[in-house]
Amino acid sequence: MKHNPYRTEKIAFSLLFLATIVVLLPVILIIGIIVQKGWPAISWEFLTAMPEKGMREGGIFPAIVGTLFLVLGTLTFALPLGVMSAIFLVEYAKDNVLTRLVKLAIINLAGVPSVVYGLFGLGIFVMFLKFGASILAGSLTLAIMVLPIIITTTREALESVPQSFREVSLSLGVSKWQTIRYSVLPHALPGILTGIILAVSRAAGETAPILFTVAAFYLPKLPDSIFDQVMALPYHLYVISTQVPNVDPKVRYGTALVLLLIVLSMNFVAIVLRSKFRKKKKW
């Protein structure tokens, strides 16, 4: 075969294009199958009623509420802690051994398998601190899991604000904290928000961390306090898929669809925010 750069170019392009399409395929299939099989189950009753007959009928209301409570609880702990430590790391911490150790620890925290968080939560919050299996213990466990996401995205958002903004502010005799408050945070906010939403969707979708710390197998009532157990969508899905016999598949797929919609819509909001931020960026 004669050397033909034009043909080589065409082959390379086709291969790269094909690879991209193959990546797309599973996403489309997953969403397609779940929507197709789950859509018939979705009704007002399915979303707002208690489960009945050993979860084979009725709705998934307590699982939706439980997931929302867990997300809220997770944010309550992870948001202030994560954002504040990111501000400290970027704006105040000097580059020394301790700082580098902290950064390394955060990266490692992100790599810990989620079931390990579950065990950790069981050991510390459920048993040692005696919170029992509860919204509090589950939220704390999830919070530790999403901390690295929030810290990393917040750090990136802060670092993307030009150093010159800080210098201008400081050169006017403005204090360091006011500089951060008025010249850095406002411009980093959309980036921070994106990270928060990603954290939320992660917290809403994980099963392993809540398995031992909060999730109830079957609890057809709403929680009274943060020391109550709740049902949660991912665990409920696991239960009706593997633990309860003779569940109508459409109930399973319906539950999966609701979970998927919650997580996807959060990701969608994150994407919209990010693109708005990029358009607004004026430097």
Partner: peptide, 17 residues
């Protein structure tokens, strides 16, 4: 802070906020 109020600075590149 007081020093920098008294001693202002104009930078090489214009940096409007």
């Amino acid at each position: 802070g007081e020093l920098r109020k008294k001693v202002g600075m104009v930078f090489a590149l214009p940096i409007p906020l």
